[in-house]
Amino acid sequence: MTAPGIFGTLSAHFRSARDIRLRALIMAERKRVSGRFKILDVGGRADYWHRVGMDFLESQDADVLIVNHEARELAGTADSRGRLRAEVGDARGLAYADHSFDLVHSNSVIEHVGSFADKCAFASEVRRLAPAYYVQTPYYWFPIDPHWPKMPLFHWMPLSWRWRLLCRFKLGFAGPHREVGHAMADLEATVLLDWAQMRSLFPDARLRPERLFGLPKSIIAERTSSRALDREEGAL
Protein backbone atom coordinates (compact mmCIF):
# COMPACT_ATOMS: atom_id res chain seq x y z
CA MET A 1 0.00 0.00 0.00
CA THR A 2 1.32 3.47 -0.88
CA ALA A 3 1.92 6.14 1.76
CA PRO A 4 -1.15 8.15 0.66
CA GLY A 5 -3.14 4.90 0.70
CA ILE A 6 -2.04 4.17 4.26
CA PHE A 7 -2.85 7.75 5.24
CA GLY A 8 -6.30 7.38 3.69
CA THR A 9 -6.94 4.20 5.64
CA LEU A 10 -5.87 5.87 8.88
CA SER A 11 -8.00 8.91 8.07
CA ALA A 12 -11.00 6.62 7.66
CA HIS A 13 -10.27 5.19 11.10
CA PHE A 14 -10.21 8.70 12.58
CA ARG A 15 -13.45 9.61 10.83
CA SER A 16 -15.13 6.57 12.36
CA ALA A 17 -13.90 7.48 15.85
CA ARG A 18 -14.95 11.09 15.26
CA ASP A 19 -18.46 9.94 14.30
CA ILE A 20 -18.76 8.03 17.58
CA ARG A 21 -17.69 11.10 19.54
CA LEU A 22 -20.09 13.35 17.62
CA ARG A 23 -23.02 11.00 18.21
CA ALA A 24 -22.22 11.02 21.93
CA LEU A 25 -22.16 14.83 21.96
CA ILE A 26 -25.49 15.04 20.13
CA MET A 27 -27.10 12.58 22.57
CA ALA A 28 -25.79 14.52 25.55
CA GLU A 29 -27.03 17.85 24.20
CA ARG A 30 -30.33 16.31 23.12
CA LYS A 31 -31.31 15.73 26.75
CA ARG A 32 -31.77 19.46 27.42
CA VAL A 33 -33.92 20.15 24.33
CA SER A 34 -37.65 19.58 23.95
CA GLY A 35 -38.91 19.21 20.43
CA ARG A 36 -36.67 18.72 17.42
CA PHE A 37 -32.91 19.04 17.91
CA LYS A 38 -31.52 21.57 15.43
CA ILE A 39 -28.00 21.17 14.05
CA LEU A 40 -26.25 23.67 11.79
CA ASP A 41 -23.47 22.12 9.71
CA VAL A 42 -21.23 24.91 8.42
CA GLY A 43 -19.49 24.02 5.17
CA GLY A 44 -20.61 20.41 5.19
CA ARG A 45 -22.10 17.88 2.79
CA ALA A 46 -24.90 15.37 2.93
CA ASP A 47 -22.65 12.30 2.59
CA TYR A 48 -21.04 13.17 5.93
CA TRP A 49 -24.39 12.86 7.72
CA HIS A 50 -25.28 9.68 5.90
CA ARG A 51 -22.06 8.29 7.37
CA VAL A 52 -22.95 9.57 10.86
CA GLY A 53 -26.27 7.78 10.34
CA MET A 54 -29.72 8.80 9.18
CA ASP A 55 -31.25 6.25 11.57
CA PHE A 56 -29.29 7.92 14.36
CA LEU A 57 -30.64 11.38 13.43
CA GLU A 58 -34.14 9.90 13.35
CA SER A 59 -33.68 8.35 16.80
CA GLN A 60 -32.61 11.73 18.20
CA ASP A 61 -35.35 13.65 16.34
CA ALA A 62 -32.52 15.77 14.94
CA ASP A 63 -32.65 18.00 11.85
CA VAL A 64 -29.51 19.19 10.07
CA LEU A 65 -29.26 22.39 8.04
CA ILE A 66 -26.14 22.30 5.85
CA VAL A 67 -24.83 25.70 4.78
CA ASN A 68 -22.13 25.85 2.11
CA HIS A 69 -20.96 28.72 -0.06
CA GLU A 70 -20.82 26.44 -3.12
CA ALA A 71 -24.17 25.17 -4.38
CA ARG A 72 -22.51 22.18 -6.09
CA GLU A 73 -21.41 20.88 -2.67
CA LEU A 74 -25.07 20.68 -1.65
CA ALA A 75 -26.22 18.37 -4.45
CA GLY A 76 -28.11 15.35 -3.18
CA THR A 77 -28.85 16.84 0.23
CA ALA A 78 -32.58 16.12 0.26
CA ASP A 79 -33.54 12.90 2.04
CA SER A 80 -36.83 11.03 2.21
CA ARG A 81 -37.16 11.60 5.96
CA GLY A 82 -36.71 15.34 5.76
CA ARG A 83 -33.84 15.34 8.22
CA LEU A 84 -31.38 17.16 5.93
CA ARG A 85 -31.83 20.61 4.39
CA ALA A 86 -29.38 22.81 2.51
CA GLU A 87 -28.82 26.51 1.94
CA VAL A 88 -26.11 28.49 0.19
CA GLY A 89 -24.46 30.96 2.56
CA ASP A 90 -21.24 32.56 3.75
CA ALA A 91 -20.17 31.17 7.14
CA ARG A 92 -18.40 34.43 7.98
CA GLY A 93 -21.76 36.17 8.21
CA LEU A 94 -24.99 34.17 8.47
CA ALA A 95 -28.48 35.67 8.66
CA TYR A 96 -29.68 33.62 11.62
CA ALA A 97 -30.54 34.94 15.07
CA ASP A 98 -28.38 34.16 18.09
CA HIS A 99 -28.89 30.60 19.36
CA SER A 100 -31.06 29.63 16.41
CA PHE A 101 -29.66 26.11 16.69
CA ASP A 102 -28.88 23.61 19.43
CA LEU A 103 -25.49 22.58 18.01
CA VAL A 104 -23.16 24.04 15.39
CA HIS A 105 -20.93 21.53 13.64
CA SER A 106 -17.98 22.05 11.32
CA ASN A 107 -15.54 19.47 10.01
CA SER A 108 -12.34 20.50 8.17
CA VAL A 109 -13.73 23.85 7.02
CA ILE A 110 -12.17 26.68 9.01
CA GLU A 111 -8.79 26.20 7.33
CA HIS A 112 -10.45 27.10 4.00
CA VAL A 113 -12.29 30.35 4.82
CA GLY A 114 -9.47 32.81 4.08
CA SER A 115 -7.30 35.09 6.19
CA PHE A 116 -7.11 34.95 9.96
CA ALA A 117 -9.64 37.81 10.07
CA ASP A 118 -11.99 35.61 8.01
CA LYS A 119 -11.38 32.75 10.41
CA CYS A 120 -12.24 35.06 13.34
CA ALA A 121 -15.54 35.95 11.65
CA PHE A 122 -16.24 32.24 11.06
CA ALA A 123 -15.50 31.36 14.69
CA SER A 124 -17.65 34.23 15.95
CA GLU A 125 -20.62 32.91 13.97
CA VAL A 126 -20.08 29.38 15.28
CA ARG A 127 -20.02 30.63 18.86
CA ARG A 128 -23.04 32.91 18.35
CA LEU A 129 -25.48 30.52 16.73
CA ALA A 130 -25.77 27.74 19.34
CA PRO A 131 -24.95 27.06 22.97
CA ALA A 132 -22.87 24.06 21.91
CA TYR A 133 -20.46 23.52 19.04
CA TYR A 134 -18.01 21.04 17.54
CA VAL A 135 -15.26 22.29 15.20
CA GLN A 136 -12.54 20.02 13.78
CA THR A 137 -9.52 21.08 11.71
CA PRO A 138 -6.20 19.50 10.65
CA TYR A 139 -3.23 20.51 12.83
CA TYR A 140 -0.48 22.63 11.27
CA TRP A 141 2.39 20.85 13.04
CA PHE A 142 1.47 17.37 11.85
CA PRO A 143 3.96 16.50 9.08
CA ILE A 144 1.31 15.51 6.50
CA ASP A 145 -1.28 18.01 5.33
CA PRO A 146 -4.33 15.89 4.34
CA HIS A 147 -4.92 18.21 1.39
CA TRP A 148 -1.53 17.27 -0.07
CA PRO A 149 -0.98 13.72 1.24
CA LYS A 150 1.50 12.63 -1.42
CA MET A 151 4.27 14.89 -0.12
CA PRO A 152 4.98 14.98 3.64
CA LEU A 153 6.21 18.35 4.96
CA PHE A 154 4.75 20.09 1.90
CA HIS A 155 2.84 22.75 3.89
CA TRP A 156 6.04 23.72 5.76
CA MET A 157 7.94 24.51 2.55
CA PRO A 158 8.40 28.07 1.22
CA LEU A 159 5.48 29.25 -0.88
CA SER A 160 7.72 29.64 -3.93
CA TRP A 161 8.57 25.93 -3.72
CA ARG A 162 5.01 24.82 -3.20
CA TRP A 163 3.40 26.43 -6.24
CA ARG A 164 6.21 25.12 -8.43
CA LEU A 165 5.71 21.60 -7.11
CA LEU A 166 1.95 21.82 -7.70
CA CYS A 167 2.58 22.84 -11.29
CA ARG A 168 4.72 19.73 -11.83
CA PHE A 169 3.11 16.98 -9.72
CA LYS A 170 -0.26 15.74 -8.53
CA LEU A 171 0.15 16.06 -4.77
CA GLY A 172 -3.49 16.19 -3.72
CA PHE A 173 -6.84 15.34 -5.25
CA ALA A 174 -6.25 17.38 -8.41
CA GLY A 175 -3.31 18.38 -10.56
CA PRO A 176 -0.78 18.97 -11.75
CA HIS A 177 -1.94 22.58 -11.98
CA ARG A 178 -1.68 24.11 -15.42
CA GLU A 179 -0.68 27.60 -14.40
CA VAL A 180 0.70 29.57 -11.47
CA GLY A 181 -2.53 31.41 -10.67
CA HIS A 182 -4.45 28.18 -10.18
CA ALA A 183 -1.74 26.73 -7.95
CA MET A 184 -1.58 29.91 -5.86
CA ALA A 185 -5.36 30.01 -5.49
CA ASP A 186 -5.37 26.45 -4.12
CA LEU A 187 -2.55 27.20 -1.71
CA GLU A 188 -4.15 30.39 -0.43
CA ALA A 189 -7.46 28.56 0.01
CA THR A 190 -5.98 26.17 2.58
CA VAL A 191 -4.22 27.60 5.63
CA LEU A 192 -3.84 25.21 8.56
CA LEU A 193 -4.05 26.33 12.18
CA ASP A 194 -2.01 25.54 15.26
CA TRP A 195 -3.08 25.10 18.89
CA ALA A 196 -2.58 28.73 19.95
CA GLN A 197 -4.58 30.02 16.99
CA MET A 198 -7.47 27.68 17.75
CA ARG A 199 -7.39 28.73 21.39
CA SER A 200 -7.61 32.37 20.25
CA LEU A 201 -10.51 31.62 17.93
CA PHE A 202 -12.46 29.48 20.41
CA PRO A 203 -11.58 30.78 23.92
CA ASP A 204 -14.64 29.17 25.54
CA ALA A 205 -14.03 25.70 24.11
CA ARG A 206 -12.29 22.61 25.30
CA LEU A 207 -9.57 21.75 22.79
CA ARG A 208 -8.44 18.20 22.30
CA PRO A 209 -6.05 16.66 19.78
CA GLU A 210 -6.53 13.56 17.68
CA ARG A 211 -3.21 11.72 17.66
CA LEU A 212 -1.51 9.49 15.14
CA PHE A 213 1.68 7.68 16.21
CA GLY A 214 1.70 9.94 19.26
CA LEU A 215 1.63 13.15 17.21
CA PRO A 216 -1.34 15.53 17.15
CA LYS A 217 -2.98 15.11 13.74
CA SER A 218 -5.98 17.40 14.14
CA ILE A 219 -7.67 19.64 16.71
CA ILE A 220 -11.27 19.51 17.87
CA ALA A 221 -12.83 22.49 19.67
CA GLU A 222 -15.93 21.64 21.68
CA ARG A 223 -18.25 23.72 23.79
CA THR A 224 -21.12 22.15 25.67
CA SER A 225 -24.35 23.90 26.59
CA SER A 226 -23.57 23.56 30.30
CA ARG A 227 -20.12 25.12 29.75
CA ALA A 228 -18.91 22.54 32.26
CA LEU A 229 -15.99 21.65 30.05
CA ASP A 230 -13.76 18.69 30.71
CA ARG A 231 -10.08 19.24 31.38
CA GLU A 232 -8.37 20.43 28.25
CA GLU A 233 -5.98 18.02 26.59
CA GLY A 234 -3.43 20.64 25.74
CA ALA A 235 -0.04 18.99 26.12
CA LEU A 236 1.26 19.12 22.57
Results as ranks from 00 to 15, higher is better:
Gly5Cys: 06
Gly5Lys: 10
Gly8Cys: 08
Gly8Asn: 14
Leu10Val: 15
Ala12Asn: 12
Ile26Gly: 01
Ile26Thr: 03
Glu29Gln: 11
Glu29Thr: 02
Arg32Asn: 01
Ser34His: 04
Ser34Tyr: 00
Asp41His: 00
Val42Pro: 00
Gly43Trp: 00
Ala46Asn: 02
His50Met: 07
Asp55Ile: 01
Ser59Met: 11
Asp61His: 13
Asp63Ile: 02
Ile66Glu: 04
His69Arg: 09
Ala75Gln: 11
Gly76His: 08
Asp79Leu: 10
Arg85Pro: 01
Gly89Leu: 09
Arg92Cys: 14
Tyr96Gly: 05
Ala97Trp: 00
Asp102Ser: 12
Ile110Tyr: 03
Gly114Met: 07
Ser115Phe: 03
Phe122Ala: 04
Ala123Phe: 05
Val126Leu: 01
Leu129Met: 09
Ala132Asp: 01
Tyr133Met: 04
Tyr134Asp: 06
His147Ile: 04
Trp148Lys: 00
Pro149Ala: 09
Lys150Asn: 08
Phe154His: 11
Met157Lys: 10
Trp161Met: 11
Leu165Pro: 08
Cys167Asp: 02
Cys167Glu: 15
Gly172Thr: 12
His177Thr: 09
Val180Trp: 02
Val180Ala: 05
Ala183His: 03
Met184Gln: 12
Glu188Ile: 08
Ala196Met: 04
Leu201Asn: 05
Asp204Val: 00
Asp204Phe: 01
Ala205His: 07
Pro216Tyr: 05
Pro216Arg: 07
Ser218Tyr: 12
Ile220Ala: 03
Ser226Gly: 04
